[in-house]
Write a protein that binds this DNA or RNA. Structure first.
Length: 193
DNA sequence: ATATAGATGTTC
DNA sequence: AACATCTATATC
């Protein structure tokens, strides 16, 4: 499967968020390769979105990559966990897509080693903090490109049953929390609750 | 099966 | 002080 070129990321954020469903997210480490199908995403459209870190064009050390060209990696540490985002929008348009869940595909034994003591299979990757740990993504990936190793996205499989919904976990974002900017594959067992 | 609380680190 | 979360524990 081919790595998606940078030009792929030049489409509008909401369209890209939907398009990412079913693609293959890959991470290579010294331990080996692990990958999963993307089954859930959320769009964060900076200037107009109170829930985005870049709301009102707030530019800090943390949000810096979002102001660059699309197709780059924005990792962010929340509590003890690390979250992955795909930067989208043109230069100086701070937009990004949060990857919330994947379905394990390659490197299952690695994923199992990184997330032991799990009762059900789906609990390994059905949340933004879980999937990063499962695939071995961390802050060292910040600022990298999704079209270059070691962290990249390739073509995937065709998907059906794309569903939109309201975003999760952003209670204090005013009107913005009602925007239907969450995309997921209906009937897939690996999406978050 | 669902619900609730508590712990965690980084940023502002 | 706020938060784009996870896990354990408790209860049905």
């Amino acid at each position: 499967m081919d790595i998606l070129p940078q030009s792929y990321y030049e489409q509008p954020t909401l369209q890209l968020a939907k398009s990412l469903l079913g693609k293959r997210l890959v991470k290579e480490t010294t331990d080996g390769l692990a990958s999963g199908w993307i089954v859930e995403t959320e769009a964060y459209i900076g200037p107009h979105d109170q829930a985005a870190h870049s709301f009102g064009n707030r530019r800090t050390k943390r949000t810096e990559v979002m102001f660059g060209p699309p197709g780059y990696v924005y990792t962010y540490v929340m509590h003890t966990h690390c979250l992955v985002n795909v930067v989208s929008g043109k230069i100086n348009q701070p937009e990004a897509i949060l990857i919330r869940a994947v379905e394990p595909y390659e490197g299952i034994h690695l994923i199992g080693k990184r997330r032991p003591n799990i009762k059900k299979e789906k609990e390994r990757t059905n949340g933004p903090g879980k999937l990063t740990k499962a695939l071995g993504i961390d802050m060292s990936d910040y600022g990298g490109a999704f079209f270059e190793r070691p962290l990249y996205i390739t073509e995937g499989k065709k998907v059906e049953g794309i569903k939109e919904g309201v975003r999760i976990g952003i209670p204090n974002s005013g009107e913005a929390k009602m925007y239907p900017w969450r995309f997921l594959l209906d009937k897939n067992k690996f999406v978050s609750k």
